[in-house]
Every structure is written in structure tokens, then in C-alpha cells.
Design a protein around this nucleic acid. Sequence first.
DNA 1: CTTGAAAAGAACTGCCT
DNA 2: AGGCAGTTCTTTTCAAG
Lengths: 152, 152
Amino acid sequence: MTDLDDLDRALLRALAQDATQSAGALGRALGLSQPAAWRRIRKLEAAGVLRGRRLRLNAEKLGFGVTVFLGIKLATKGRVSLEDFERAVSAIPEVQRVEHVLGLYDYRLRVVARDLPDFERVLRRRIMTLPGVGEVEANVLLSEERRLGPIG
Amino acid sequence: MTDLDDLDRALLRALAQDATQSAGALGRALGLSQPAAWRRIRKLEAAGVLRGRRLRLNAEKLGFGVTVFLGIKLATKGRVSLEDFERAVSAIPEVQRVEHVLGLYDYRLRVVARDLPDFERVLRRRIMTLPGVGEVEANVLLSEERRLGPIG
DNA sequence: CTTGAAAAGAACTGCCT
DNA sequence: AGGCAGTTCTTTTCAAG
């Protein structure tokens, strides 16, 4: 954890809404000069709090209309099988996120596909053949809302 | 879906790695002039394919060491109870993502907390008291890997 | 911390192929 | 479509209060 003051939090909150804002605009919104806002952003980057910027892409417009969450239980657990599983799952292009979790499942995957037939292909030929896979449970995404979270 | 050519895909792939790259740098990498690369990016934004840029924040450095995924089954389903649930869940600051899904669960939530005692507080006082909540299942995040996905 | 200023670079525009 | 040249803006750094 890093110690941030209120201005750092306000800066991050503003940037989280729109990461394209200039240091000058942020400073104006918070009563800071452009160099002051800029120095704070640099410091947050140097501290590793702010790790960069990512694109927000519209999967549907890119032709990926189906998003499915998979909960996976491994049949065989152990250090080697975790590594085998992770290596194999990383090679599937349709997998957007791999989450190693503790609980009912061992892994949770976010998978995108063009449509349901395409998803079935991915599931049967790529997911079910992963090393060590036991039970697989699926949830199809209907809609999602991303929120800022308690940051700030 | 939008029709993109290979250059658009290459542009998005490069930007997905680092969204701070300038149009000039992208153009040089792809054999385009700065205005040509810039015009393509503008067009992708206008078409809604590229919906903006978000920050990559380090939750741990911000003091949120615990991330938990919750699978929630509603006890009472129906249009009204879905809306009630969504409105109430949106008011919980610790909830980072609300996913409405089809399958074993009705909703999946990504929740962050400072530590496990803090998570227990959120779970007991905010999640379990949500309107219409039935079963709740939890998975604690150990590690995650985000991949580009099949975009491009 | 601030203001002011200067240099570099990126974004944007118009015109031409 | 793409390139070139030019203008405007932001970013980035520095000096000084």
C-alpha cells in the first residue's frame, strides 16, 4: 500500500472516468496548476499505483457477440498440474482472463466467441481438452456494469 | 459488427498493449504516416469500436488486498426484483463489476475489500441484505492474468 | 506549492496524389 | 484511401518566487 492524499485520490478518480484528460484539465478541475497535477501523476506512475492505460474495446463491434464465464474444477491438483493447466489455457486466444481462485472452483475463465456455435467449438475442442480439467460450469453474460470501486 | 481491415486490427492490437502510444509511433510501426494512423484511430472511435481508455490501477497499492468473486442466485426472480437488485448493488462502493448472467447464477459480482475482516463486513452488511438474494457463493482471487483475447 | 516560459512532441487541418 | 506540410495544442522541463 502507498500513502495517497485526497488530491491523489481525486486525481485517480477523475482519471478513472476518462484516462485521456490532460494534466492541465485535471489541475483546473482540482485547483492545481498544470505542473503540479502532472508531477502527481508521474509520482503515482513511479509508485506503481497507476500501471498504465488500457483500451476499452467494444467486443460486439469486433464480431464477438458471446461472452461466457467458466468455472473450472481441476481433477488433479498439485503444483505441476496447475502450471500445466495455466500454460495450456494461456494458448487459447478466446480466453480473455484467467483467474486462479480459492473456493468452489479452481479457475475462472472469461471466454469470448463470435456466436454460440463458435463458443461450442471452443468449449469442446479447447476447454474440455485442457490438462487436468474436472468439472466445468458456464454462465453466459447478458449485460455487465463496471464501476469505479472504492478507489478514491 | 464493423468491418475492419488488417491495419485497423494491427492498430488495435498495438494500442491494446500500450494505450499511450502516439499516432506517429503507431504509424511508424505499421508503415503509415502520422495523419493516416490518426485518422484510422478517429474512425474506430467514431464507429464505437474503441470506446475510450481506462486506467490500470494496482488495487493492492491502493490498500485493497482482497478481491472476491460472488455468484448470486436470486430467491425471487422477475423484472421488478432484477431492477431492485441492480439498483441496490450499484450503491455498494466495494462492488467493482456487476455481471448479469444466464446459468447456475443470476449475477456475478467482483468485490474488493481491504482485508478479510473488511470483506466479511461487506458480505454480511451489504451483500446478504440485498433485496431478493438467495444463494451466495464466493471465490477468493489468488492471481489473475489478463490477455488480449482474439481481437485482431 | 505557485507562475511563466520555452522546447519538444503530439494532435489536428487542408490540400494534393 | 494515403502523404506532405503547416498550425495548434499538450506535454515536459526549467527557472524563479
